[in-house]
């Protein structure tokens, strides 16, 4: 499916560029976008290194375990395939907390750490596990209490009340997350893996 969408984006784009008679635009885009991918990865190195260091301290001190125990009632339902007190749980909780607070820069390192932990439980190494899909369903639809970036944009644009969209954002994300988790459960009935 991802193969088809990926190819479709390229084919449609190139056909449109051909009709417009702008093949050089495709060439430029390829160079720019490829460089952007590398730059993003490099930009992430520092943050990843730092937060995984901090996370390791949290694990060694038992903090991550404590967090995992506190959220056990929820994770038992959401991630039945992950054993109790698995380190994945602490990382998932930190990632979601960072997302809720609008701390995108800290969220990614915790999230990737969570993926590493979930991958250690995943027998089929190039196919997503149930727990991973559920985690990403929560991650991409996550409720947001502090939409920090957009509040910043509103302040810069001279808003009288920049945070007035906090409530509407929370509502929209709450609905989005509920539907995402429901959709995940429904899809799973049809795509169960062994």
């Amino acid at each position: 499916m991802i193969n088809f969408i990926w190819l479709l984006l390229i084919i449609i784009g190139i056909i449109v560029a051909a009709i417009k008679g702008q093949p050089e635009m495709i060439t430029d885009t390829v160079i720019q976008a490829a460089n952007l991918g590398v730059r993003y990865s490099f930009d992430l190195i520092g943050l990843m290194t730092f937060w995984l260091g901090i996370m390791r301290l949290g694990e060694a001190a038992g903090l991550v375990d404590i967090l995992a125990k506190i959220i056990r009632p929820f994770t038992k339902v959401l991630f039945p395939s992950v054993p109790a007190n698995h380190p994945a749980m602490g990382a998932i909780l930190l990632n979601i907390s960072a997302n809720v607070l609008g701390l995108g820069n800290a969220a990614t390192p915790f999230g990737l750490k969570a993926m590493q932990e979930l991958q250690s439980l995943n027998k089929n190494s190039n196919e997503a596990s149930d727990a991973m899909v559920t985690f990403l369903a929560i991650n991409t639809s996550c409720i947001v209490i502090v939409p920090a970036t957009i509040i910043g944009v509103r302040v810069a644009a001279g808003s009288i009340n920049a945070t007035e969209i906090v409530g509407t954002t929370l509502f929209a994300t709450l609905i989005g997350m509920t539907i995402a988790l429901t959709a995940d459960k429904v899809f799973r009935l049809f795509t169960r893996k062994g």
Binding site: M1, I2, I5, T108, G111, L112, M115, Q116, L118, Q119, N122, S125, N126, E127, A128, M132, V133, L136, A137, N139, T140, S141, A172, T173, I175, G176, M177, I179, A180, A183, D184, F187, R188, T191, K193
Partner: peptide, 27 residues
């Protein structure tokens, strides 16, 4: 999805993309 699955070498996303897009549409 690209970043998270990429970090662990997963290229088969199963229904993750649909779930994410349904969430976006709902939001």
């Amino acid at each position: 999805l690209t970043v998270y699955f990429g970090s662990v070498g997963i290229s088969k996303y199963r229904h993750a993309l649909w779930v994410g897009l349904i969430a976006d549409l709902t939001s």
